[in-house]
Write a protein that binds this DNA or RNA. Structure first.
Lengths: 243, 243
DNA sequence: AGATCTATTTATAGCCTCTAAACAAACATA
DNA sequence: TATGTTTGTTTAGAGGCTATAAATAGATCT
């Protein structure tokens, strides 16, 4: 078969795959999690049910592909915010990326909801080489980068390793090693502490776990950022209304 | 109809309701969220499908009833841990309740998972008088109590109201008012900050959002408790192995 | 032109939710 | 005690879902 022909067919296939994901996403956003069924997506595209199985092996794989998209889109939004501040101090870039994370999450609650609580099988039986998992790793890198940058230019305060619980110390060592030495265990601890507070807050907001007390979490998030800046020994700068 | 007879029938009905919930819970724990279907529960009990609709109006209501159970069980576990320390300082009781919360969550991951991310309709269309919502409120009270107790006996540090973002200040005022004045807005702020950090961490653990870095979050949780104790101006006491 | 590969359809099995209608057993009252 | 009502249950069935198998229409290669 001519190479040209093969390429064209491949392009067509990719286009169909993309249309499937776009349709599924629209259903998710407009009608909620339960509306994203293989049948409904196919129907919506003018295909008949089983045709879709030539593109995704089943419901689960489709969901996985969507979540991977979401991870990448979120990571890209954060990277864009960071890069829009090229040349500015690392702390400013970090804050911008963190704000971009919440902006994306609040602007895409259904998608963000699937990132940390998508339907599907128990997490135990999720292969580590799935697109979903890969995208998760990419996301981790984007989150990590600003911290590494900060650490390399103006090291932030870290705890004494010996002061930490032995089990925690070991886990930090292992994680740090997996990072290829970009952050020593102590710095990894500070990074993870910050991450837990920020991302945890966002999870709670999007899962409506704070509706009992708050109607608007923007100021709560800003306050969290202020505390993180302080914990990192960095100057806090409020968001600029324009960008 | 004799009152006695009515009572007996009502007892039978309650027993069936309880058996349904117990069966559904077993399916949840043993086979995951998706296994909890009306049909499967009925089959498991030796009933035939539609019979179950005489007890719960449908899948959604059944899930709601289960979540209410879980809320209450968690609240009760916390209350029990607190009451086992009657007479000890409020801070000790608070720490005990917080540890009981994680112990329950880790011991019942499927149930805890449903508390904050159960299947069902978008949260928008959940009535505020559902059992689920009621149980959520009860849970809030149990969480709140130790903080109120602490506040009344040895007031913890609170921020200056004027130093907070105006929107946040207003939300805190509203929340405080809804609490019937048991905590002033500043104290509510401290309470909520602590709650967000603790519960947020637990959510992330149970949703496996921290698997990328940690294998055991017990020391992370303890460290969080230590920080909270410090933020509340209280002495931190490590858990006693025995209890 | 015939063989092959790809995309798609129909047909089907088996599960699900939920409603309707039939039926049986328990009960209350005349 | 006989009868009608209430309650719990079952069967039947409509409609949707996942997923597979088999049939079919088109495109492509030799």
């Amino acid at each position: 078969m001519a190479a040209r022909t093969t390429q064209r067919k491949e392009r067509m296939r990719q286009a169909t795959l993309a249309e499937i994901r776009a349709t599924a996403r629209r259903l998710l956003v407009e009608h909620g999690s339960a509306a994203v069924t293989v049948n409904a997506v196919a129907r919506e595209m003018g295909l008949s049910g089983p045709a879709l199985y030539h593109y995704y092996a089943g419901h689960e794989e489709l969901v996985g592909a969507l979540v991977a998209d979401f991870y990448r889109e979120l990571a890209q939004a954060m990277a864009a915010a960071r890069d829009a501040r090229a040349g500015e101090p690392p702390a400013v870039r970090l804050l911008a990326a963190c704000r971009a994370m919440r902006a994306w999450a609040v602007g895409h609650p259904a998608e963000f909801g699937w990132i940390f609580a998508s339907p599907g099988p128990p997490r135990a039986e999720r292969s580590a080489d799935s697109p979903r998992h890969q995208a998760g790793l990419e996301f981790e890198q984007v989150v990590l980068e600003p911290f590494v940058e900060l650490w390399e230019t103006s090291p932030f305060p870290v705890p004494e390793l010996d002061a930490l619980d032995p089990s925690l110390r070991e886990q930090l060592r292992a994680y740090s090693a997996g990072l290829g030495g970009r952050l020593p265990p102590e710095a990894a601890h500070t990074f993870l502490t910050c991450w837990i507070r920020l991302y945890g807050l966002l999870c709670m907001e999007v899962l409506h776990q704070l509706d009992f007390a708050f109607t608007d979490l923007e100021p709560v998030y800003e306050e969290c950022l202020r505390e993180l800046a302080a914990a990192l020994g960095q100057e806090y700068r409020p968001p600029e209304p324009g960008r």
